[in-house]
C-alpha cells in the first residue's frame, strides 16, 4: 500500500529538499522561501507539524542543537523517498512533451 504521506505535498517536498543540508526549523522556512522563489512561505504550525511527521516516519532526524533550536537533516530513507518522487515527477513531465496518447509506452 502507498505510504500516507505519498505523493508528497508541496510542504513536505520542499522540507525534504531543504534538509539535504542540516538546518533548524526557522532556517528551513527561510531556505524554502528562497528556493521556491518566494512562492512557498510556511507558517509556524505547519512547519512544526511537518517536521514532527517527517521525523516520526524516519525521513529526517535531529542531528544537533543550536541553542534551544533543534537541527534536522534528511535520512537515507528520506533520500530514497525523494528519489522515488523525482522519478514519478520526471515521468509526468515527460508526458507534457507528447501531443497525443498513441505513443508506444
Amino acid at each position: 500500500m502507498k505510504h500516507k504521506l505519498l505523493p508528497l505535498s508541496e510542504t513536505m517536498h520542499y522540507i525534504l529538499l531543504a534538509l539535504r543540508e542540516p538546518l533548524h526549523g526557522y532556517a528551513v522556512m527561510q531556505k524554502i522561501e528562497q528556493i521556491s522563489n518566494g512562492t512557498v512561505s510556511l507558517a509556524a504550525g505547519t512547519l512544526y507539524g511537518a517536521i514532527e511527521n517527517l521525523n516520526k516516519h524516519g525521513w529526517i532526524e535531529p542531528v544537533g542543537n543550536s541553542g534551544r533550536r533543534k537541527i534536522y537533516m534528511i535520512t537515507a530513507e528520506g533520500n530514497a523517498i525523494l528519489k522515488m518522487e523525482q522519478e514519478r515527477l520526471l515521468h509526468i513531465l515527460s508526458l507534457y512533451g507528447r501531443d497525443d496518447s498513441n505513443e508506444d509506452v
Partner: peptide
C-alpha cells in the same frame, strides 16, 4: 499565540496541517 500583524498572519499554511488541527 499572538504576533504583530504582517504578511504571515497564519499558523497553518497548507491543507494538510489545517486538517490535522
Amino acid at each position: 499565540w499572538q504576533k504583530e500583524d504582517d504578511d504571515q498572519n497564519e499558523i497553518f499554511s497548507d491543507r494538510q496541517s489545517m486538517g490535522n488541527y
